[in-house]
Amino acid sequence: MPTECLSFVGRANDLHKSALTPHTNEMKLVFLADPLAVRQALKASMTGLARLHLTADERGMIEIVLAEVLNNVVEHAYGQDAQGIIELQIKRAGDQLHFTVLDDGVPLSDGNIPQTPRQSLSGPVSHLPEGGFGWSLIKELTRDLRYMHRGNRNKLVFTISLADTRIS
């Protein structure tokens, strides 16, 4: 019953704090694993974080990381034919933003975060890579990146340090 399954998403969303508040310092979003829902979730995340008065650089960094992580779930964990749900939790502790992304899709291959060897860009244009940027962007912009698979759930956790971004 896909329709009934999905109808709870909207309500589930309403039940959770979808913006950081001074009381909780955490927010949670639940949404469908498809590219347009990911777009909306990114927008909702950035709106939810507005109270932190992030710099443009920090906002850009967070949005890049979240887009890569969430699109990975859509494209790889669930794939083209499967429908599924993604849960995103954000907690703030001082200058650290802790992110948790949960899904019930296929585990990462080899049960771990892929290696990201430095891709060669020096050859002819026809040899340039058109993909494989996602995980390297995530690794560059986060710290304490960890992946776990328990039961049927994939769990990815990572931290973005707000203070660090003010350095660059």
Partner: peptide
């Protein structure tokens, strides 16, 4: 995002070597 970047790379690969494919006015992000 990386999908968008991959698409831009693909466009350049398709245009080269006959044509020059250049970019203008990138936002900070």
């Amino acid at each position: 995002d990386s999908s968008g970047l991959g698409a831009i790379v693909a466009v350049m690969k398709q245009a080269c070597p006959d044509k020059s494919f250049e970019l203008a006015n990138l936002s900070p992000t």
